[in-house]
Design a binder for these strands. Structure first.
Length: 429
RNA sequence: GUGAUUGUAGCUCAGUUGGUUAGAGCGCCAGGUUGUGGCCCUGGAGGCCGGGGGUUCGAGUCCCCUCAUUCACCCCA
């Protein structure tokens, strides 16, 4: 074992895997563009208050999971971003985006940081892509966001994901429900676990979300927010569901789905994969009209968004055998040089081939022909091009198809032309 | 933060009740074929057995500490 290891909860992505990431990111870019979302890139750290205000100080993320530090003793505390939404909203408000146009559709891909114990599907540095639709509050907007997310899953070939959805109502609904909930739980105060007692005080809704089996049993008899919704909130939710049905997106209403972040209102949703183990949420999101005001804006900015964990997405794709289909980055030609004194000429040819747009690999270590051939085989080159004394003198080179073992002798120009035609066939474009 | 788990070669793992120079498969390198890969054969390199301390004539094996891994809880992507 080497002396230095990557920091706990972080990992390296080597080329084979990076190709998979690129594939996913390319799909995200394409579909986001198709739906009219444009990319935003924001800083990887923010002032700590942004997350305290935005995400909510009672949440686990803010309470115990943030990587915070103080760059200078008198300076303000800074935190590595544990999620994207607060930063995106901050950027939008700072830039005064809403004075330019009322609606903004943004998407992002980036790394996030949370100080949790790593486990399957959970790291301290992880990545998400997501979209934020800022400036509209209609059910259509929420449906748009969910549809884009589901479209990404579909385009990647994923099967069997479960979309759960719920509504949290507006602040009035929640206030009335909160009182009802506290009243209902009051007689049971003594049997509540510690976390639930605290939640009952600070954020009663989250009791419903408890995964403690004893609490779940108790919760199953508790009142439902759904029954406390005012008519407009109910209609809003039903309209979202209507759009999902229209688009053929299967969902399951889960009255206990609350989600951990304070800024959600109305529709909240989560997508889970049964292939992930304990940490089975692959994506989630919802509507968060109050976030802008939390961040000091004079008024609410109606908004909704989703985020998908890329590591968990890739794990699920792996389990479903979807990664094998991702195109490889193997070279087309491996240039095999017979003798050392032809090495310079070999470099010259490799350069010519690359100029012609043909992906070419060549031995740089002066190794034996056998070693070069083995290497060509290992890296899955399509062809071996031999350079020996005969080729050097005649200008005709031997080209071997490493799959069929067929070998022909052609001029370099003919080889370039041949390979170009081959590649057109292979890629089908 | 809590609980459990596992640390032996680059990787996956053997290693018997503590007993000489710690093994296998795969991978890597070289040769068998001085102009041709995969398959096969032969050989080679590569380990302070995670680190520290202790028990013992003797520790990869037993005990303690520590570091790291993995899984789970809490919660989330």
């Amino acid at each position: 074992m080497s002396q230095y290891q990557s920091v706990k909860g972080t990992r390296d992505i080597f080329p084979e895997e990076a190709a998979q990431w690129n594939y996913v990111e390319t799909i995200v870019h394409k579909l986001a563009a198709l739906y009219g979302f444009r990319e935003i890139r924001i800083p990887i750290f923010e002032y700590t208050e942004l997350f305290q205000r935005g995400i909510g100080s009672t949440t686990d993320i803010v309470g115990k999971e943030m990587f915070s530090f103080q760059p200078d003793p008198k300076g303000r505390s800074i935190t590595l971003r544990p999620e994207m939404t607060a930063g995106v909203m901050r950027a939008a408000l700072q830039k005064n985006l809403f004075s330019l146009a009322p609606v903004h559709k943004l998407f992002y891909i980036g790394e996030l940081f949370r100080k949790e114990r790593p486990q399957a599907g959970r790291q301290r540095q992880f990545s998400q892509f997501g979209a934020e639709l800022l400036g509209v509050s209609s059910p259509a907007a929420v449906a748009e966001v969910i549809t884009l997310m589901m479209q990404v899953f579909k385009s990647l070939g994923l099967n069997g994901l479960k979309l759960r959805i719920n509504t949290l109502g507006d602040s009035e609904d929640r206030l009335r429900f909160r009182e009802a909930l506290q009243a209902w739980f009051a007689p049971f105060h003594d049997i509540l676990d510690e976390a639930s007692k605290e939640r009952l005080e600070k954020n009663p809704l989250r009791i419903l979300d408890s995964k403690n089996p004893a609490m779940q049993e108790l919760v199953s008899g508790a009142p439902r927010l759904y029954d406390y919704l005012k008519e407009s909130s109910l209609q809003d939710f039903k309209k979202v569901l209507f759009y999902l049905e229209e688009r053929g997106i299967a969902y399951e209403i889960d009255h206990r789905l609350v989600r951990g972040l304070d800024y959600y209102c109305h529709t909240a949703f989560e997508v889970t994969s049964s292939e992930l183990g304990a940490q089975d949420a692959i994506g989630g999101g919802g509507r968060y009209d109050a976030l802008a005001r939390e961040l000091g804006n004079s008024a609410d900015v109606p908004a909704s968004g989703f985020a998908v964990g890329i590591e968990r997405l890739l794990i699920t794709m792996e389990k479903q055998g979807l990664l094998a289909a991702i195109p490889s980055d193997a070279p087309v030609v491996y240039l095999v040089v017979q003798q050392q004194d032809l090495a310079d000429h070999g470099m010259q040819i490799a350069w010519q081939l690359r100029e012609a747009g043909i992906k070419t690999e060549i031995d740089l270590a002066g190794r034996s022909m056998k070693a070069q051939m083995r290497e060509a085989n290992r890296i899955n080159a399509a062809y071996a091009l031999f350079l020996g004394a005969t080729e050097y003198e005649t200008g005709h080179y031997s080209l071997k198809n490493l799959v069929t073992s067929e070998q022909t002798t052609l001029t370099l120009e003919a080889i370039v032309q041949f390979l170009r035609e081959q590649r057109l066939q292979q890629c089908g474009n």
